[in-house]
Amino acid sequence: MKNSMLKNGLILAGFALATTAIIAVTFSGTKDTIAQQQIQKRLSILSAIIPKNSFDNDIQHSCVLTSNSDLLGTNEPQRAYLGWQNGQPSVVAIEAIAPNGYSGKIAIIVGTKLDGSVTGVRVLDHKETPGLGDKIELRVNDWILSFSGETVTTENSDQWQVKKDGGQFDQFTGATITPRAVVKAVRNAVLYVKQEQQALFESASSCELDITDAHVEEVD
């Protein structure tokens, strides 16, 4: 009986070791490909939300980590990609969190010029209800494009709400909480850049892409 148990235990241990080895070899052989795909995904997002003629530096590598729980929605460090043109600061693409989505946190990235005008917004990750809240994804609905060209100022801050709350942005039928959360997060992210732009551009690059980063919902 003991010999049988020992034999079975050795077989299971051998199987576990073999499986671990296979996984390790597979990861080693694909990690460069995964990293390259993540880099391409990041470039696609940046290209989608920031006009190429608004910067002339290698923006994906001009990246700093920054945090502000009030305006960026989390205490966790968020990436800010800094665009320069002719040696002068020009644009920022900053990640932020809408902490109060219907089904939890919504991760976004916002492109903005330094005067507070939005160049583009994309959703990075969310768990909103399919068919309702997922209309924040560009592949589902073009609602997210409504931010492009809008500007956040002290005078129009009250307009940065959904129409149900007296603002200018559409809500979704049967789903107001999700767009309300995203509108607020976009506005706050732009306000953060306006307030902290000097500190951001004076910071040394401090972030690189990690291939374990969160899943990106859409980049088109």
Rank of each mutant, 00 (worst) to 15 (best):
R139D: 02
P99V: 01
S148G: 10
I108S: 00
G83R: 03
L132M: 06
R122P: 10
E137V: 04
I97F: 01
G133H: 04
V152A: 08
S117N: 08
K105G: 04
Q168S: 13
G149L: 12
K41T: 15
L132S: 06
K52E: 11
T66C: 14
W143M: 07
Q78F: 04
V123F: 01
N86G: 07
I97N: 03
Q85A: 07
I109K: 06
G120K: 07
I97G: 00
E128H: 04
D142M: 05
Q85V: 01
W143Y: 10
G116T: 06
I144R: 13
D115V: 12
P99F: 03
Q168P: 03
F55M: 02
N57W: 02
K163T: 12
P99G: 02
S69F: 12
A96V: 00
P99K: 03
A107Y: 14
G167K: 07
P130V: 00
Y102R: 14
E128T: 05
G116M: 09
D115A: 11
T154C: 09
S90C: 07
R139F: 11
L114M: 05
I94V: 14
N86D: 13
V92K: 10
T129N: 07
S157P: 04
V123L: 08
V123K: 01
N100P: 02
A98W: 00
A96N: 01
V92F: 07
V64N: 10
V91A: 02
T154G: 15
I50Y: 01
K52G: 12
K41Y: 11
S47T: 09
T153R: 10
D134R: 09
L65D: 11
D158M: 12
V110L: 07
S47A: 15
T154A: 15
N53K: 14
S54H: 12
Q78D: 11
R139Y: 12
E150W: 05
T74H: 02
K135S: 11
Y81Q: 06
E76A: 15
L72N: 14
G111R: 06
R42L: 15
F147K: 02
K127V: 10
V140L: 04
V121G: 01
G167V: 11
Y102E: 02
T153W: 09
K52T: 13
I94F: 07
N53L: 11
K135Y: 14
D134Q: 03
T119K: 05
W143N: 10
S103H: 11
P77Y: 11
L46P: 05
S117F: 09
G116L: 07
S67L: 11
L145P: 06
L124C: 05
V123R: 01
L65M: 14
G149M: 12
E155T: 15
V152R: 09
T119Q: 12
Q60W: 12
T129H: 10
T153K: 07
G104C: 05
Q88A: 10
W160P: 06
V64A: 09
N100Y: 04
S47M: 08
L145W: 09
L114T: 10
I50K: 01
Q168G: 05
L46I: 04
S47R: 15
D165F: 09
V110N: 06
Q168D: 05
V123Y: 00
Q60S: 13
Q40C: 07
I106A: 00
G111E: 00
I136N: 03
F55C: 02
Q38E: 15
Y81H: 11
N57L: 03
R42S: 15
V152F: 08
P51K: 11
K105R: 13
E137R: 01
I106Y: 00
